[in-house]
């Protein structure tokens, strides 16, 4: 309770004091409204502001503008240079790609040529081999035919011989070779027919 009382009284005292000062000030007039000091304030305002303006416009601002300008130019230059470098790099890349494409095309051409050549060679070889094989087959077939014919003749002869022997055994009379072979041939024809 006592603390509260002290606080409120202190607050009241502070407020009172402020009021007293305000009253004092208003009774004396605000310092701002005292014309006695206006000329001095204006005089020093003109001096300081004028001097500052002179320094700013003639020295500081051009210096800052110069620094900013120079940096901007420099950056622009650097950008230009970077652009040049980029363009050069792009040119080099184009040339490289061109060379690569050329080489590829050339390699493909060579490959195609080689392939065609090889195809020709293979075809020739194939043809030769085929011809040779065909010849061999023909020869072999001819031989087989001959052998077949020979075998058939031999079979006929053997049959005639056998027929003669059978007949001789059965009737004790041997037919002529001619008759036997004619009979075999007839029999063979009949069997086939």
């Amino acid at each position: 309770m006592s603390v509260f009382a002290i606080v409120t009284s202190a607050a009241a005292a502070a407020a009172e004091e402020a009021q007293a000062h305000a009253a004092e000030a208003s009774s004396a007039g605000l310092p701002q409204l005292d014309p006695a000091w206006w000329p001095s304030q204006l005089f020093w305002l003109v001096i300081t502001f004028g001097f500052l303006y002179w320094l700013m416009s003639s020295r500081f601002l051009p210096a800052i503008a110069g620094a900013i300008e120079e940096r901007r130019d420099r950056i622009a230059d650097d950008l230009d240079q970077a652009g040049d470098f980029k363009r050069q790099a792009e040119d080099a890349e184009t040339a490289y790609n061109q060379a690569l494409a050329d080489a590829k095309a050339k390699a493909q051409g060579i490959a195609a040529d080689t392939r065609a050549e090889m195809d020709d060679e293979i075809a020739t070889l194939q043809a030769e081999t085929d011809a040779q094989l065909a010849k061999q087959v023909t020869t072999a077939e001819a031989r087989i035919g001959e052998m077949k014919a020979a075998a058939a003749t031999k079979v006929g002869e053997a049959a005639a011989e056998t027929a003669r022997a059978v007949v001789e055994t059965l009737i004790d009379e041997a037919p002529t070779e001619e008759a036997a072979s004619r009979a075999v041939t007839d029999a063979a024809t009949r069997l086939r027919g």
């Binding site: 402020a18 000062h21 305000a22 000091w37 000329p39 001095s40 005089f43």
Partner: peptide, 21 residues
């Protein structure tokens, strides 16, 4: 006081003719 801070106080008296600068 809150208004005291605005008071103009002379440090060096200077006059230009009759004008107090």
């Amino acid at each position: 006081g809150p208004m005291e801070q605005f008071e103009i106080l002379p440090i060096v008296d200077l006059h230009l003719g009759s004008i107090n600068i």
